[in-house]
Computed example of a mutant assay.
Amino acid sequence: MHPPAFWFRPRHRPGLRARLLAPLAAVWSWAGRRRLAGQTPERLGIPVVCVGNLTLGGAGKTPTVIALVSRLVAQGVRVHVISRGHGGSLEGPVAVDERRHSAAEVGDEPLLIAPFAPVWVARDRAAAGRAAEAAGAEIVIMDDGFQNPALAKDLSIVVVDAATGFGNGRVVPSGPLREPVARGLARADMVLAIGAPADRAAFAAAWPETAALPVAGAALAPLDTGMAWEGLRAFAFAGIGRPAKFFATLRALGAEIVAAREFADHAVYDRRILSRLDSEAHESRAQLVTTEKDAVRLPPDFRRKIIVVPVRLALDDWAPLDTALARIRRPMQRGTTSE
């Protein structure tokens, strides 16, 4: 689904539709609180880092996971990632093999992360955590799952898209939140605000509650692949949380977007849709361009027609996260340390 515009109105002026949907939002919020209170989290023998968010989609969790994995691997830490595998059919636990598995089996995000570290997909996150630990992981990073009580978390990072923040501050369906801001921040250890400096400043001003936690700043930047974007006629399409961010990135690279097609997050592209995109791009004499996340959901034969724009997360300062990671790293059950 595409999020409705009223979700992102100012928190002090949510509008009539948000107010009318408040009773349903109260039910959603109650159900989430009950789910968290109704289960005792399982604790692994190794640290668990959760990268989550308070809103539905589009915050930048997966690039954050990749950045954390890369940081830890560079320090010699054996890090594994666990994921529910949104949209995948396999119940798991299964170790993701990007050469063998498809997005229909394990989800798109695990396929993006798998080149950087071992990834375990399972509907039961505790089972995925146990599989990672048994396979020799020293630290587990949980991609999403902040609202899931199955595993005890040693470090919880709430990722937020600074441009949209927490929207109107209301819970689904009145707003974009999975849970109330105050409740979520009370369980978090750190906030990672992703976006331009001006957007981050506006977010901090709109949500002063976040000042009670360490707040790190970061930005997503296209990976330099040597592609000459200037003047390229691009037929862009994206099925991510905020396709507009992708289109803005293309324009900033210098591409001329002749058409932009938005799809729902995790969209499944059937042959009918792909044929239409291919035909429209050909008629426009434009190059099909999409995101990494979309590309892994495409059939291999169609993927060859696409130019992909990879992005990576760059933190302003790693010190707050390095300090938090150092705090939770402890002697492993095997009697060794990751230091």
Rank of each mutant, 00 (worst) to 15 (best):
A31T: 08
A126L: 10
E105C: 08
E42D: 01
L111Q: 06
A5R: 15
A228R: 13
L277V: 04
P222V: 07
V51W: 00
S83V: 14
A219D: 15
A218W: 06
P299H: 07
G88F: 06
R330P: 02
A216F: 13
R170C: 02
D124Q: 15
L68H: 04
N168S: 06
A37F: 11
L232M: 09
N168F: 13
M190A: 13
L192T: 04
V69C: 00
D189F: 07
V289K: 11
G167C: 10
K245R: 13
V191Y: 09
Q147G: 09
H101Y: 06
D316N: 15
P299F: 12
G32D: 01
L68M: 08
P310H: 03
A104C: 03
I113C: 15
V65W: 14
A211N: 05
L56A: 15
V65R: 11
A95F: 01
H80L: 00
D154Q: 04
V191N: 05
T40N: 04
G231N: 07
M1L: 09
V81W: 10
M142R: 13
G169P: 01
D124H: 15
V27F: 10
A22I: 06
R330Q: 09
P110Q: 13
H86V: 15
E230I: 05
A26H: 09
G76P: 01
A204N: 12
A74F: 06
L325T: 03
R84N: 01
A22V: 10
G226E: 10
G145E: 12
T55N: 14
G45K: 15
P118T: 02
S156W: 02
T62N: 14
A326S: 09
D301K: 04
G32Q: 12
A248T: 03
P214K: 10
A259C: 11
L185V: 11
R99F: 01
A326L: 10
I139M: 05
L223N: 05
R9Q: 12
V171G: 00
R276Y: 00
D322A: 07
V49P: 00
A152M: 07
D108P: 10
A5M: 14
A206V: 03
A114F: 06
A324R: 09
R34G: 03
A196D: 09
L24H: 05
L177W: 03
A117F: 08
R125E: 02
P4H: 14
G76V: 01
R17G: 11
R183F: 06
T62Q: 13
A234C: 03
A22K: 11
L223F: 01
E105F: 12
G87Y: 12
V77K: 15
R9C: 01
P320K: 06
G32Y: 04
T40W: 10
H282R: 14
R130E: 01
L253F: 04
